[in-house]
């Protein structure tokens, strides 16, 4: 059974002197271990929603709890030490080495040197940074590498939750894809709960187990990417999603080009089948209609040649 990692109860935020709330009354639950993306146009309140969790912004009304505990019940520095935080500008400390940057939270917590050093080694390996970068300074690294350090630094105190505000927003497309893939597998491996702001539809769908679609301070839809894509809750959501032509992209891609090898065990008889020439849109519809984790792809002579999963559709879109 999954616990509630983050819970918003009737939370709203109106900045002083602002005419209307930046975030209207919102209640939502982020289950432990899930990767939730927050998607929406500029100024819709994504950052505000995110920053209320580590109290960089204090809600005007309502309560936020982390693992069942009101975030106001712990000192704010302690709360933040237990929640990883990654921002688009990275914000590495330019006068400290990579190693020292990553060791920030362990040093605040007063860990032993041995333990800190081991943690730094482990994290650098985890985020794929070469060991000899330890003694370098941030400005000697590329933007993508700097954000890897940013992620390692955020994870150094073993937080169960990571808050990320457009962490890959300033990074070129190719590097970004690599970072997304690497980070998603880190998240799955370690079972971290992630709340991740982006204004990139593709990124929100690819990374999120669930996604929050926001507009003008209110949540329009909070569901799996697939559900958002196939059953947008309103006009706004469908426009936002289609603005990126995801369906069109899916309808242009053939099952035969994207399938992977069939599993060793015999295919269940109840698993639906599609043709190699079918579009991924058809595959998606089949998956949804039959509510199955995967479909079998068969060639024109009816022999099974591959399979496609929901996961692959989510990850494969746009490629």
């Amino acid at each position: 059974m999954s616990k509630e990692a983050i819970k918003f109860e009737q939370v709203s935020k109106t900045f002083p002197k602002a005419a209307k709330p930046s975030v209207h009354e919102t209640s939502l639950i982020v289950p432990q271990g899930s990767f939730v993306t927050i998607l929406g146009a500029s100024g819709c309140g994504k950052t505000t929603l995110l920053k209320m969790v580590n109290r960089i912004i204090e809600p005007t009304t309502g309560t936020i709890s982390v693992f069942g505990k009101d975030i106001r019940s712990t000192p704010v520095t302690e709360l933040r030490q237990s929640i990883g935080y990654v921002i688009q500008q990275v914000g590495l400390f330019p006068h400290l080495t990579i190693e020292q940057n990553i060791a920030t939270v362990p040093n605040i917590l007063g860990w032993e040197r041995r333990k800190t050093a081991e943690k730094v080694d482990y994290l650098m390996k985890l985020v794929h940074l070469p060991e000899n970068y330890k003694k370098l300074y941030p400005r000697q690294l590329s933007g993508g590498q700097q954000q890897r350090v940013g992620i390692a630094r955020a994870m150094a105190g073993d937080p169960a939750i990571l808050l990320m505000d457009e962490p890959f927003g300033a990074i070129d497309a190719i590097t970004r894809t690599k970072l997304q893939d690497d980070f998603k597998s880190i998240q799955q491996e370690l079972g971290k709960t992630v709340l991740f702001v982006t204004h990139d539809v593709e990124e929100a769908m690819k990374l999120g187990d669930r996604m929050i679609v926001m507009n003008e301070g209110t949540i329009q839809q909070y569901d799996t990417p697939l559900a958002v894509m196939s059953k947008p809750s309103n006009e706004f959501v469908s426009t936002l999603i289609q603005a990126d032509d995801l369906f069109q992209q899916l309808s242009l891609m053939r099952a035969g080009e994207h399938m992977t090898a069939l599993p060793q065990e015999p295919v269940g008889a109840d698993i639906p089948r599609v043709q190699t020439g079918d579009s991924l849109k058809t595959v998606l519809q089949t998956l949804l209609q039959h509510n199955v984790p995967y479909v079998v792809v068969e060639n024109s002579s009816g022999e099974p040649v591959g399979q496609l999963t929901l996961e692959q559709l989510k990850l494969g879109n746009g490629k």
Partner: peptide, 13 residues
């Protein structure tokens, strides 16, 4: 850089 301050306080300094 304000982002440096934000990162530092966000990490719990």
């Amino acid at each position: 850089e304000p982002s440096i301050i934000e990162a530092a306080s966000g990490l719990g300094m």
